[in-house]
Simulated assay, not measured.
Amino acid sequence: MTAFAACIFALAALASALTIAATLRRHGADALALRARLAECPETLVLTWKVMERVPLPTLAALRKRPARRIPARLEWPGATIDLAA
């Protein structure tokens, strides 16, 4: 790694750390008090989560009644023809 790239990486890491620190300083107290504020609410909200399994669907090729017609791939260049199927 060149010295320039290392300096850019270090500056980006410093900027990221300063941004995280500023965000924690600004919103940290509110985030920590959120659980107490939610406990004080007279109304409750119940969330229920359900998990659904994903079943793999058949591919479109399996649903075809006739097999797909394959066209051989050919690459044409001025003065030469190359057969890609071979």
Rank of each mutant, 00 (worst) to 15 (best):
M1F: 10
A3F: 06
F4K: 10
F4N: 07
A5V: 08
A6D: 11
A6N: 12
A6C: 10
C7N: 15
C7Q: 14
C7L: 15
I8C: 15
I8L: 15
I8E: 15
F9W: 14
F9H: 13
A10L: 09
L11M: 12
L11N: 11
A12I: 10
A12Q: 13
A12V: 10
L14M: 12
L14Y: 07
A15G: 13
A15R: 09
A15I: 06
A17I: 08
A17M: 09
L18P: 00
L18Q: 14
T19K: 15
A21H: 13
A21E: 11
A21D: 13
L24A: 09
R25V: 02
R26I: 03
R26D: 05
H27D: 12
H27T: 08
G28N: 03
G28S: 01
A29S: 09
A29N: 08
D30Y: 03
L32T: 09
A33T: 00
A33Y: 04
A33W: 00
L34Y: 11
A36T: 03
A36M: 06
A36Y: 07
R37N: 11
R37D: 06
L38W: 06
L38V: 04
A39Q: 08
A39Y: 05
E40L: 04
E40V: 02
C41Q: 13
C41F: 10
P42H: 07
E43M: 14
E43Y: 13
E43P: 06
E43H: 15
T44G: 03
T44F: 01
L45I: 06
V46F: 05
L47R: 02
T48L: 03
T48K: 01
W49R: 12
W49A: 09
K50L: 08
K50Y: 07
K50P: 01
V51Y: 10
V51K: 10
R54P: 03
R54Q: 13
R54M: 09
P56D: 09
P58S: 08
P58R: 07
T59P: 01
T59W: 12
L60G: 14
A61M: 14
A62V: 12
L63S: 14
K65Q: 14
K65F: 09
K65H: 10
K65M: 08
R66G: 06
P67T: 02
P67A: 08
P67W: 02
P67F: 02
P67M: 05
A68S: 12
R69P: 03
R70Y: 13
R70F: 11
I71F: 14
P72V: 02
A73L: 01
A73E: 01
R74N: 04
L75F: 08
L75K: 04
E76T: 00
E76M: 01
E76W: 00
E76D: 09
W77P: 05
P78D: 10
P78I: 06
P78N: 14
P78M: 06
G79K: 01
G79A: 04
G79V: 00
A80R: 03
A80E: 02
T81V: 07
I82D: 04
D83E: 00
D83G: 03
D83L: 03
L84R: 03
L84P: 00
L84E: 00
A85E: 05
A86L: 05
A86R: 07
